[in-house]
Design a protein around this nucleic acid. Structure first.
Lengths: 297, 297
DNA sequence: TACCACGATTGAAATTTTCTATCGTGGCGA
DNA sequence: TCGCCACGATAGAAAATTTCAATCGTGGTA
């Protein structure tokens, strides 16, 4: 039964019987039969059947909710019992938005000092993908915006405030300023994240509100790539203050606060709304609270 | 896996491998192997092994908690999906303390009017047994005291206040009074519930506080039996006001309020702290809230 | 000391699960 | 319009697992 529920979750993730079967490590007929058996025991159709996967029925969606919860709880049970015997071990899966990636090290480093047997896997993902991954039990925690676009069903721990700076060469236009306005930034050719990133949508909004138009010269989903371009001294970008500090400024590259308005967004840790949390996730939340205290103001 | 967790719950209920197996509809070796397999997948001992069942290990108790939750959720899933298709059907299992049994009809009658396909099973149990039954997923709801002795992990809906009256023949000692004190009641030979009932412990406490000693002439776990004795005109008892009304007073039997102090205890519906509730339980909670509104004050 | 209750163990039988191979269907491009 | 292709369903054989009846071993008890 539990494995059938896993099949259902995989199917919702992959939207495809064959691929779902593969991720579960079984063949396609096995997964098909599993879903059909679920349908029989529940007495309802769960999947809209055509010649290919179309979607779930209303009952299927509801069952999916329960499946996520039940499967999640059974994994949490295993993890907790294991932790009772062997302390915190295993793998912690985290996804973070690109602008928060640098902050992850502030969490993982003290975490590892306390719990050396935990291994980490960290993905760079959009805020929307983070929520989907969390729904589907593919990550244990996420680092994302808490206050801008709607959050799904998660518990959140605020970590720090994201403030925006223009990153540019000192000898470029605006390079000598102590502060610049969003309107001014709108007239500079920029390297920005791609529009599927919430950070980009925030910056777009701020630029438009200042009456400017958004004309990025270069887009990427990688902050490293953006930063590398800025480093050449020939490009400019908009980055959160903390990230710019972490990446390291040189004599020739300046980070200039952007005002009018001095926009601020909250970044935080999100974890599944499970009670109790898995031990690994609970320890991460504890770490996040400690970190938040040191970052305050 | 799910069935193994059911075995664990059954074992905690029966404290005996053979009986637990029987209630699960399998043989004893099957249940033994199931528990052992659980122990292997979790990598810990769950049961203290002697030549017979001794108890669970700490890890076993923790696993039991998870098992109750996971098994409860999977049943709730089945029930909810079934309700989506066929409306509310199936069986609602309720346990009530004896003094609240008469009130059950106030819940079941309107419930059945709304949902005619639901069948009821109702047990008379002590307040402690009700909590145990709920823990072990053997009942869907209970009717018990909310305010006197510690309640377990449940959600509660207050229903009504229990006030105490002396039930006695009009021509017996105290039979002509408008009110009597607990001290006076302490001097009358009484029919009371057995001491495993919380109602009895409450009355004991009140009698002792009034300086009297508790000397029941007759004890039973059945309110019907107590009432039948009172009906003969030769015995007296202490009953909640509402129950006395429901059982029906005759010209010769009077219900006399007991004061000093005018003790009051809250009775309510308790349901498992599951979110969401099963549809059957949720409907009962709705009914209880309606009833509570009509009973107010 | 002998018995008894209880849970573990064993080995065979039954059931369930899983796989490979193949079928049928609907969509899509030539 | 036809033919191909991707996808999920189906069938049947093989493998894995679960379950059971029978029996054993161990403590506790008379």
């Amino acid at each position: 039964m539990l494995d059938k529920l896993e099949y259902l979750i995989a199917l919702s993730r992959e939207q495809h019987f064959g691929r779902a079967a593969e991720t579960c490590g079984v063949t396609q007929p096995t997964l098909s039969a599993g879903i059909k058996q679920l349908e029989e025991t529940l007495g309802v159709l769960l999947v809209q059947r055509g010649s290919r996967f179309i979607g779930f029925t209303a009952e299927g969606e509801r069952t999916l909710d329960w499946a996520r919860r039940i499967v999640g709880d059974s994994r949490a049970m295993r993890e907790e019992i294991n932790a009772l015997r062997h302390g915190l071990t295993g793998q912690l899966r985290i996804a973070a938005i690109p602008t928060a990636l640098a902050m992850v090290a502030q969490l993982t480093t003290p975490y590892r000092a306390r719990h050396p047997d935990v291994r980490f896997t960290i993905w760079s993902r959009t805020s929307i993908e983070i929520l989907t991954l969390m729904e589907n039990l593919e990550i244990d925690a996420g680092l994302t915006y808490l206050d801008n676009e709607p959050l799904g069903r998660v518990n959140a721990v605020p970590l720090y405030q994201e403030r925006y700076q223009l990153l540019t060469a000192a000898d470029a236009p605006l390079g000598n300023r102590e502060r610049v306005t969003w309107k001014e930034v709108g007239h500079v050719p920029l390297c920005l994240l791609t529009p599927d990133m919430q950070n980009r949508r925030i910056i777009d909004g701020l630029l438009r509100a200042a009456g400017g138009d958004v004309q990025p010269t270069l887009e990427s989903d990688s902050m490293i790539l953006l930063f590398a371009h800025v480093r050449t001294g020939r490009w400019a970008s908009v980055m959160p203050a903390r990230l710019a500090e972490t990446l390291g400024l040189t004599a020739t590259i300046r980070a200039i606060p952007i005002v009018e308005p001095e926009a601020v967004h909250t970044i935080g840790l999100v974890v599944p709304p499970r009670e109790p949390l898995t031990p690994l996730a609970a320890a991460l939340v504890a770490e996040a609270k400690r970190l938040a205290a040191t970052l305050d103001t």
